[in-house]
Write a protein that binds this DNA or RNA. Structure first.
Lengths: 229, 229
DNA sequence: CGGCCTGTTGATCTGTTTCAATTTGGGTGG
DNA sequence: CCACCCAAATTGAAACAGATCAACAGGCCG
């Protein structure tokens, strides 16, 4: 029987894309499919980093807490995204399912053993880490130097870019709450909400529902976000 | 004649630490030592990522600009730090020498060829990328959720941690200007300066000179920074 | 000696937060 | 299927942290 990975529709974009079909056999032997319901925690910041994950469906929220409870959302993961690069023996953030989520789980030890045999896999990981590092620095620029309006515009465009494969008519789905967005871009829920209404008044976006945004005015949004074209 | 790398005093902490003495021979053949004077630019954001660097002396400032000139400093590099992990065909930030700087330069193409022959090197890079990713997320938490005082305290402690090997009597040297610090932690020069005086009044720090800080009150600083002990 | 850059301090202003009150909408049970 | 309930979202008013504008002090270099 062939490896189930062969039929995986996100294989191309995921880590596994680094492997030839015949190598997938060995690879899939260490994989375990797993599901989480909306609201479940996948792991906590500080937990021993025992597993790596590949998200195959749904949306995962990554976050860190300060001792007094202030929260920073460090990212959202979607199908195809890899989870577990940022660790120093223990996880650097908490990962929670904000919708029902499907993942492939790899025990770290066995995964690392695979790296020795498949250098292409290690190259892929390094490339992914490089991309994540660049993305993290964009987020650092956003948090350190952008205004509320610029932050929200950038946030929406980031999501849009990642959903571009499945997006139609510039209609963007926001699985997360306003408070998730706020904790991601360093604002409060109220400010995020107010900024959405301002952007609506200026016709840069249209809120179909609180979780469905149409990006009218893409050009202006990019200008606001400070993107170089 | 033996490779000059053999005698390098930061080899243990740098990328090259992944290599056995006999491998260093091959490694050092692609390395070029280079120096930059204070104020010189090593490369610009957007430049084709042609080289990788290992900082062997001095302090390098990494920064990104918004189209209107607002600046975000994404980090400072010191001896032993690696430069060039975060790229997507072109550099994601500008790198400038803020003191006289010494580096080892590796042409990217040849460096990547080495990776194929020395998997230990690739492992090392992946580990370093992991650490940088975790550090970037700490910075994201700082920028998104910490107050001015907390930001400055965290900044000082971060520097102290990285200089811990060479630091005596909790005396911390700050090679960068107030404005560099401000652009790093998302504040203005004025606020950074005022925060330094406040921390001084509260006896958490003592400014020997504007660029020499003694960290009295380490415990309180850690509490302020929100570090878990 | 003079000019300039860096740092510090003061006064005022403003974007965002905080506190508070509604409104909306999705999910559930009758 | 609808009414109810509660969390999420929106909106308004007031407060505040940090930014901005401005003046000045100190150190360094030409």
């Amino acid at each position: 029987m062939a490896s189930p990975c062969v039929a995986c529709n996100i294989r191309e974009t995921a880590v596994c894309g680094a492997l030839a079909p015949e190598e997938l056999e060995r690879f899939s032997s260490i994989v375990m499919a797993q599901t989480f319901e909306a609201g479940e925690t996948i792991f906590f910041e500080g937990d021993t980093a025992a597993n790596l994950y590949n998200v195959t469906g749904g949306c995962v929220r990554l976050s860190k807490l300060l001792p007094d409870g202030r929260r920073q959302v460090t990212g959202f993961l979607f199908a195809g995204d890899f989870l577990g690069l940022a660790y120093v023996d223990s996880y650097a953030f908490t990962a929670e399912a904000i919708t029902d989520v499907r993942v492939c789980l790899f025990p770290r030890g066995r995964f690392q053993a695979l790296l020795d045999d498949f250098p292409a896999l290690e190259k892929r990981l390094l490339g992914m880490a490089s991309n994540e590092l660049a993305a993290a620095q964009d987020q650092i620029l956003l948090l350190g130097r952008k205004s509320a309006k610029e932050k929200v515009a950038s946030f929406l465009l980031n999501l849009a870019k990642r959903q571009s494969a499945t997006m139609v008519d510039n209609l963007l789905h926001l699985p997360m709450t306003r408070s998730d967005i706020a904790d991601c871009v360093g604002l409060t829920t109220e400010t995020v909400s107010r900024t959405f209404t301002k952007l609506t008044e200026e016709r840069l976006i249209t809120l179909k529902t609180p979780h469905e945004v149409e990006l009218t005015g893409l050009g202006d949004l990019h200008d606001l976000a400070g993107d170089y074209h």
